[in-house]
Computed example of a mutant assay.
Amino acid sequence: MMVEGEMKEVSETVMLDAIKFAHKEIKKHCKVQMELMEESGKTVKREYSHEENDEEIRKAVESFCYERCYAIARSGEDKHTRSDAFEALKEEFMQTIPEAEREEKAMMVSRYYHDVEKRAMRRMILDEGIRLDGRSTSDIRPIWCEIDYLPMAHGSAIFTRGETQSLTTVTMGTKLDMKEMDEVLIQGTEQFVLHYNFPPFSTGEARPSRGIGRREIGHGN
């Protein structure tokens, strides 16, 4: 069950009464849906199909890959080199499977390999206190910053930490540039507007820009 609500201060009794009232109304919606199912003939539910597993392959992946995954994680190489090494190891294991069975078992191997890779990295961090880039759990990467990086902008700054770099600009505007908010519970304007742009080339990807992606949503917008 999922319950959504918003309030400032309310007693538990009032809240419970509200939930009970909503539950009574939800039953009406459920009844209509059941009637529609009957009318459309969609009364048989799909059978749940659990993922297939093969313990022999799981053990083979563990035996073949764990120590080498640990060594790759422990190498302290940069992210791209490390990713290539992990991928090469998985491909090397795939070559041990008969060619006629590779396509059929590829997804299963990928799932088991992901678990082994994750466990190796986790054990290294927990047991040795070393992270993937060679730092200890208490080390902080050095940061480089500079302000007024772009001379023609109203304001700008750039910073670099590890493989992450951000260039930020500030533009002053008039009241006509204010952000208008017309939401269910919030109406009005906001003086500060953040536009966060994360183009594919910034992570070495080659794909078209088609609206906001997961990084823009998660990082800024």
Rank of each mutant, 00 (worst) to 15 (best):
E38V: 15
E47F: 08
A22W: 02
E62S: 11
I125N: 03
M178W: 10
E38D: 10
I186Y: 04
V193T: 09
R141D: 03
I125H: 08
K27R: 03
A88R: 11
R74Q: 10
H80L: 14
A18S: 06
C145P: 00
S75F: 14
L185I: 12
M37T: 13
Y149D: 08
T189L: 00
E39W: 07
E117Y: 09
S110F: 09
H154I: 05
M37G: 07
M107S: 10
E205D: 12
T189M: 00
M7T: 12
A71K: 15
E92G: 11
E117P: 09
P98G: 04
V3N: 04
A106L: 00
E67Y: 11
S209F: 01
K8M: 05
G5S: 08
E101D: 10
R111M: 09
I147G: 14
A18H: 04
T189F: 00
E103D: 03
S110H: 09
M34L: 06
E9F: 08
S202N: 04
R215C: 00
F64C: 05
R74L: 15
V10H: 02
S138A: 12
S110D: 04
H80W: 14
A73Q: 09
H23E: 12
L132K: 13
S136P: 01
V14E: 13
V3I: 14
S83H: 10
V184M: 09
R207Q: 02
E51C: 07
E103W: 04
K8W: 03
T137E: 12
R58H: 01
F192R: 07
K118M: 05
K8S: 00
A71N: 09
M181W: 08
G204Y: 08
M124D: 13
R46S: 10
C65P: 08
F201C: 05
V116S: 02
Y48M: 05
L36G: 06
E56I: 01
S136A: 12
M15T: 05
Q165W: 02
E56N: 03
E67R: 15
E52N: 05
V116M: 02
T174M: 05
K8H: 05
H219T: 10
L185Q: 11
G188R: 04
H154A: 03
E101P: 01
K31T: 10
I26C: 12
A106R: 01
F159D: 11
V184K: 10
G5W: 13
Y196N: 04
C65W: 00
S138E: 15
F93N: 02
G173K: 13
I147L: 14
H80D: 14
R46L: 12
P151R: 13
F159W: 09
M172D: 08
R122N: 05
D84S: 11
A153Q: 14
E92S: 12
R74P: 03
T137A: 11
H114G: 09
K27H: 01
E77W: 15
M107P: 02
E104A: 13
Y196V: 09
R82L: 06
I217P: 00
V116Y: 06
D84C: 13
F64T: 00
T168Q: 09
